Each structure stands twice: as C-alpha cells, then as structure tokens.
Amino acid sequence: MSRIGKRPVALPSGVTAKIEDGKLVVKGSKGELSMSTSDLIDYKLEAEAITVTPANKSKQARQYWGMQRTLVQNLVDGVTEGFSKVLEITGVGYRAQAQGKKLKLQLGFSHDIDLDVPEGLEVKTPDQTTVEISGIDKQKVGQFAAEIREWRKPEPYKGKGVKYRGEYIFRKEGKKK
C-alpha cells in the first residue's frame, strides 16, 4: 500500500483541474500545466482534491501509484508557487550573464558558452557567480539546471565548477611532497 499515493492532492482556491482526452489539465494563477494520464491509475476529481488510486491490483499499477500522485502534486505546486533552482559558480574567471533569452557562461574554456533558455523558464543572474532558474514545470527547471551544471561539474580539490546552492562537495587532500 503506497503511503504517498493514499493521500489526496489538495486543490487550493483559484486552482481548477479537469480530465479531458486522456490528459489531466491544472490551471492556476501562474499558468496551465498538463500531463497524460495512465491507464493503470484512476484519477478522481472531487470538490477540493484529486484522488489517485490504482485501477487494478497488478504490481505495475501499485508501482505507478505513488509516482503518479507526486506528479499531480507537482502540477498543483507549479501553477500556485512555481519551482526554482539556484546554481553557484566557483572559480577564478568563471562567470554567468543572462541576456534576454540567452545565458552566457564563461567556465574556463577557450570560448564562451551561449545557452538558449527553454520556453516557460526565467533565468536571472543577481551577480556574476549566481544563476537563478525559475518556472512552473519542475522537470524543465531541473533539466536546465542539470545541463548548465554538466558544463563544469565541481572538482574535489579546489571545488571549482558549477554547483547547486546547498550542495556539499566532498573535498580531497592535495598531493604531498
């Protein structure tokens, strides 16, 4: 029995949900998100909540149950509050600059890295070593943050690179004489 799946997803005031053409559509103050529904899961729209239950007693339906409930919760959270990730850049000469729908990174390569910001995301650089990514789709925010981090992961000796705010970098001791 899924402990996560058993709990209904509460719909705050101002948020509406409907199921049409095999999609669950959630509208809120920040926008509209949708996801395709699974045949293994039953979605019930109630007055102020969405209940997710397995459609049958198969193992696969029970495996999907908790994940589908979490995906529905992410839709509701996205249209009400949104999601954000903050990246910190450490290293001499490493910097970032947001220019409209582009993000310019200087990470020690012989060239600058110009990344196009995906649709629906907003990127800010309050200073040269901080990148704030925000949007209503949790998957898009996390994916774009991971793509930026992939260019220069933090190294264990000096900690230079791109890391998430609050991420712990295990440090190694340098070479001894």
Rank of each mutant, 00 (worst) to 15 (best):
G5P: 08
G5I: 11
K6A: 13
R7V: 11
S13Y: 15
A17W: 02
G22A: 03
L24D: 07
K27M: 00
K27P: 00
K27G: 00
G28P: 03
S29V: 12
S29N: 08
K30V: 00
G31T: 05
S34M: 10
M35I: 11
M35R: 09
S36Y: 13
T37F: 08
T37V: 15
S38N: 05
L40P: 03
D42T: 06
D42Q: 03
Y43F: 14
L45A: 13
L45M: 15
A47C: 01
A49C: 04
A49V: 05
I50D: 02
T51S: 03
T51M: 00
T51D: 00
V52H: 11
V52W: 09
T53F: 01
T53R: 14
A55D: 06
S58G: 00
A61M: 04
A61R: 02
R62S: 00
R62F: 04
Y64A: 12
G66T: 08
T70N: 05
V76N: 12
V76K: 11
D77M: 03
G78L: 15
G78F: 06
G82Y: 13
S84F: 09
S84Q: 07
S84I: 02
K85M: 07
L87A: 06
L87M: 09
T90F: 12
G91F: 07
R95E: 07
Q97D: 09
Q97P: 02
Q99A: 12
K101H: 14
K101F: 05
K102Y: 13
L105K: 06
Q106W: 05
Q106D: 04
L107A: 07
L107E: 04
F109K: 08
D112T: 13
I113A: 05
I113T: 10
L115W: 08
P118L: 06
E119Q: 11
L121V: 08
K124Q: 15
D127F: 09
Q128E: 13
T129H: 13
E132H: 11
E132C: 14
E132Q: 14
S134W: 00
S134G: 01
I136R: 00
D137K: 07
D137S: 04
K138D: 12
K138W: 05
K138Y: 07
Q139G: 03
K140M: 08
G142N: 15
G142L: 13
Q143T: 15
F144P: 05
E147C: 05
E150Y: 07
K153G: 09
G159V: 04
G159K: 05
G159F: 06
G161Q: 04
V162C: 01
V162H: 01
K163T: 12
R165P: 01
R165E: 14
G166C: 09
G166Q: 12
E167T: 07
E167F: 03
Y168F: 09
Y168K: 10
I169G: 03
I169C: 08
I169P: 04
F170G: 04
E173N: 06
K176M: 14
